[in-house]
């Protein structure tokens, strides 16, 4: 496994007035890894994601993606560079079918212009065929093949979460950020998700995942960063994190005496 840091933050801070949601966090993600971000509620995990994907302007510090400083880039630019995310509260395009949701994910990889669309040129037809064929493949990868023509809003909960991942994959991201992909899933759904994430990782993509399901995190992650109240309190592999006194204290509180 290469030692390239595909994503790196330096002293990244996001403050809301007096609240230090993320405070001087230095972290990095190695290419090809599945990297976990954990921490109690309010630790700043989602805020960190929002800053990484351009939804929030950091108050201080810098973000590097593939060595390029992307601090303050608008979110659609981040997606073009190969950084795509899913959302903690599901944000699918509800009245569109599953396959159409995925087709939207291809957006910036296509070249169809207004005139191409009006005159149904070759470029348009090729783009449409690509999104349909590759879109169906992606649905298969996420075990969603049978749902292709169903409206996103009508799918079962766990399926919607997998569809979000499929849609994010459509932009062919080098780095996929998953925000609590297993939230609200039952154990069977979580197991299926875990298999899906491993499959995506085996395909060579780097994945950063925020999750509260510790079993899932310990199972799939190569490295884990632990945040608490905006600060990074620990980083390392599953074993290191599991035995770190700071982490135990953050989750369980200080032992008496």
């Amino acid at each position: 496994m290469s030692e390239e840091r595909i994503l790196e933050t330096r002293e990244l801070s996001i403050h809301f007035g007096g609240l230090k949601a993320v405070d001087k966090v230095d972290m990095w993600v190695l290419r090809g890894h599945v990297h976990g971000i954990i921490g109690p509620n309010g630790a700043g995990k989602t805020t960190l994601f929002n800053a990484l994907t351009g939804f929030l302007q950091p108050t201080g510090g810098r973000i590097f993606f593939k060595g390029v400083d992307i601090t303050g880039f608008p979110s659609h630019r981040a997606a073009e560079l190969g950084l795509c995310r899913s959302f903690q509260n599901i944000k699918l395009f509800k009245t569109m079918t599953a396959i159409e949701n995925v087709r939207v994910g291809f957006h910036y990889r296509l070249r169809t212009t207004l005139l191409d669309a009006i005159f149904r040129t070759r470029r348009f037809r090729e783009d449409e065929r690509l999104t349909l064929e590759r879109g169906r493949e992606l649905l298969e990868t996420m075990r969603l093949g049978q749902y292709a023509d169903f409206k996103a809003a009508k799918l079962p909960y766990g399926t919607q979460r997998r569809l979000e991942i499929a849609r994010a994959l459509a932009s062919d991201p080098e780095l996929l950020l998953l925000d609590e992909p297993a939230a609200g899933m039952n154990p069977a759904e979580t197991a299926e998700l875990s298999a899906c994430i491993r499959r995506i990782s085996a395909g060579g993509r780097t994945i950063v995942v925020i999750e509260h399901d510790m079993r899932l995190i310990m199972e799939i992650c190569d490295r884990i960063t632990v945040l608490n109240q905006g600060l990074k309190i620990c980083e390392g592999d599953a074993e290191t994190v599991r035995h770190d006194p700071g982490v135990i204290q953050a989750y369980l509180g200080r032992s008496a005496g």
Binding site: T53, F55, S75, R85, F93, G105, H107, Y108, A168
Partner: peptide, 8 residues
Amino acid sequence: LAARAMGI
């Protein structure tokens, strides 16, 4: 927001 995250 999701549209923006998808690169639009």
